[in-house]
Design a protein around this nucleic acid. Sequence first.
DNA 1: ACATAACAATGTTATACAGCACAAATATAT
DNA 2: ATATATTTGTGCTGTATAACATTGTTATGT
Lengths: 232, 232
Amino acid sequence: MIRRITESVLQDEMSQMWEILNGDEQKILLENFQIQTFKKNGMIYCEGDKPTHLMCLLKGKVKIYKDGIGGRAQIIRLIRPVQYFGYRAFFAEENYGTSACAFEAATIGLVPMEIIENLIKQNNQFAYFFIKELSVGLGRSDTRTVNLTQKHIRGRLAESLLHLKESYGLEEDNATINIYMSRDDLASLSNMTTSNAIRTLSSFYNEKLIIVDGRKIKIINEEQLKKISRFG
Amino acid sequence: MIRRITESVLQDEMSQMWEILNGDEQKILLENFQIQTFKKNGMIYCEGDKPTHLMCLLKGKVKIYKDGIGGRAQIIRLIRPVQYFGYRAFFAEENYGTSACAFEAATIGLVPMEIIENLIKQNNQFAYFFIKELSVGLGRSDTRTVNLTQKHIRGRLAESLLHLKESYGLEEDNATINIYMSRDDLASLSNMTTSNAIRTLSSFYNEKLIIVDGRKIKIINEEQLKKISRFG
DNA sequence: ACATAACAATGTTATACAGCACAAATATAT
DNA sequence: ATATATTTGTGCTGTATAACATTGTTATGT
């Protein structure tokens, strides 16, 4: 019964990966697949840990971050369902260089990296899946470096808000960003202090670009935000 | 005769890749391999171009950079012989997100990406080579993001100097960094303005950490530079 | 050898941003 | 439900660093 459930998860939600595999390979994946849940703010893995599993976010929201200088965290990547993560360090033969934490209650599918490694060795399309995944990620990371270092504070925050919208979408009102995020996290995402995140957020509110209600943020002038993000 | 030469280049210098391939595959690589030279400051490819070839730096020094906001360039990666580059965008199915330029006269080996793609599809170890290469690169890029955004100006410059030493080594005196780089490039590498690169360099000189003679930089107190890099 | 341009060095000013302190408002746990 | 901890909002102050201006120095070409 449980096997039925996990099989349908693999088939339906992780189809991108599942469909590349042949029957035998699917069977191997199924036999080694497990699902784990994490509470809000639960740690999924820590910087320095040994990577053991490929992870696939099935439900919830996850942040990948690095602890920088003086405890200042820096969010590197936001994960949404269905995205894969946690495998880079294994391939690079390193310990994790980042930590992963659930923004909100999360359900994650896990596959031991040895299994993934073997599948890669027998299925080239599967290997190519990771090559593409990593290549896209590397491009993003480089772009992010430049954005974070060269854009001004307003541009960085505007970019983050738009990025949150792209990643997690909007609520039923078609305006409120569908995430409940602290000012602190918003600051880590935008490479600024919490004070500045708060301050800039209220500037945007005064300029009628957004409406802020506690942690809920409604975008009301996306065009202008885009302009500011491009550099304003 | 020419074939003999290119074969020896593949065998000796690009051995990391060559040795993974079987006889037939090596033949394919050899038949599609060509060597090209670039002058000092010669452009190898540009942001926005369509990626067509895997490149391998055989001789010289190359910088990979992005043109950021207001013409401010940002060096993303330094290439030394023998390192591979130029393939990411193809795998990601994007145009180049960076530009590549020769610091000094460079010799580059080129292989059409279609050939690489086919080799990947028939040789899993070859695929794994790229998975590892990309994984290491992605980790570096993420680390770099945090270093450039969170370290202070002195820390960033110290880090760059040490990085240059690691990348290109020292001259016979075992102290002078083996690269002839403008202050402007040093600034792009360290995410600062040219003025600040110059200023901070002369601070380091006054503190007797380095000796500067034009573009030649001699490291005389590496320990202290490391401390500053870690955060001083 | 000289002119011209590119590069390097340094001082001055302007500004964006970080750090801190404190009060008010919200979450979270018991 | 109440207490405790965390998060949020603001103002103020100091500082790092970007921007600008000036001058000296080193390449490059004629």
